[in-house]
């Protein structure tokens, strides 16, 4: 299992002629299989931290280690490889490739990994069924609802068995029912597969699902609390395939 360690992370942006601290000496350690929420107001640094953890952005200072690998010193190509093999992303705006069907979107990452067609097909269909989209594999993003699109994005994020899933405001564009169902799905995947989830949000409902809640402000971690976390529907006996968003 892979743990995440951040030490003294700093990131500064220039905006309107003045310097803004996106991350200000952030120290953070996340154990494998944790279900973590980063919360805070807009501009508090949660997305910046998420981007740095995912290798999308490089800190000005400090170290990030995933497992035994320092990622803050990797090249663009190495970072792309790391994201491909170890990290899954779920974004606020669903971000599916519009010219690909739901199945092809899920298969896309596996295609980049060089997995053969039969295995891709089997894994994508299984995962789509797991997130409750059986029968919708051939539909393109424009033919799916917002909730369904986000489920496809989740399926794509987890299909290659990443050690870490980073989700940035995943429920921001969803209605409350779809948001709850998505969080149930995240929790099930966390429990069932042991995937580490780090979710950036300022949605109180999302925070209620997390067992660890990190609050940020002005680029700093202002609190790091452990809480019971909401119990996933699966543990109450409802299979995810039976839920419809």
């Amino acid at each position: 299992m892979t743990s995440i360690l951040c030490q003294q992370l700093c990131k500064t942006f220039e905006q309107g002629g003045s310097l803004i601290k996106g991350l200000d000496h952030v120290d953070l350690s996340i154990e494998p299989g944790e279900f973590v929420c980063l919360s805070g107001p807009s501009g508090s640094g949660k997305t910046t931290l998420l981007n740095a953890l995912g290798g999308l952005d490089t800190p000005d200072q400090g170290e990030i280690t995933i497992g035994d690998q320092r990622i803050d010193q990797l090249s663009k190509k190495q970072l792309a490889h790391l994201r491909l093999q170890k990290i899954g992303f779920v974004f606020q705006a669903f971000n599916l490739v519009p010219v690909l069907s739901a199945r092809e979107n899920v298969e896309f990452v596996m295609q980049l990994q060089g997995i053969d067609k039969a295995e891709r097909r089997q894994r994508s269909d299984t995962i789509l069924a797991e997130v409750g989209l059986a029968g919708l594999e051939q539909r393109r993003p424009a033919q799916l609802s917002g909730g369904q699109q986000q489920r496809v994005a989740v399926a794509r994020a987890i299909v290659s068995n990443p050690v870490l899933v980073l989700a940035d405001e995943p429920t921001a564009n969803l209605d409350s029912n779809s948001a709850s169902q998505l969080m149930d799905l995240f929790q099930q995947l966390n429990q069932k597969r042991g995937i580490t989830f780090v979710i950036a949000t300022h949605d109180q409902r999302v925070m209620s699902y997390c067992r660890r809640l990190i609050r940020m402000q002005d680029g700093r971690i202002v609190s790091d609390e452990t809480q019971p976390g909401k119990i996933a529907l699966q543990s109450e006996g409802v299979a995810p395939q039976e839920q419809a968003l």
């Binding site: 190509k77 792309a80 490889h81 971000n95 980049l112």
Partner: peptide, 16 residues
């Protein structure tokens, strides 16, 4: 543009 960023985020290399 946005889609290209997404593909990079998913692990597509600049060369690809």
């Amino acid at each position: 543009t946005r889609e290209i960023g997404l593909m990079q985020a998913l692990g597509m290399t600049p060369a690809s």
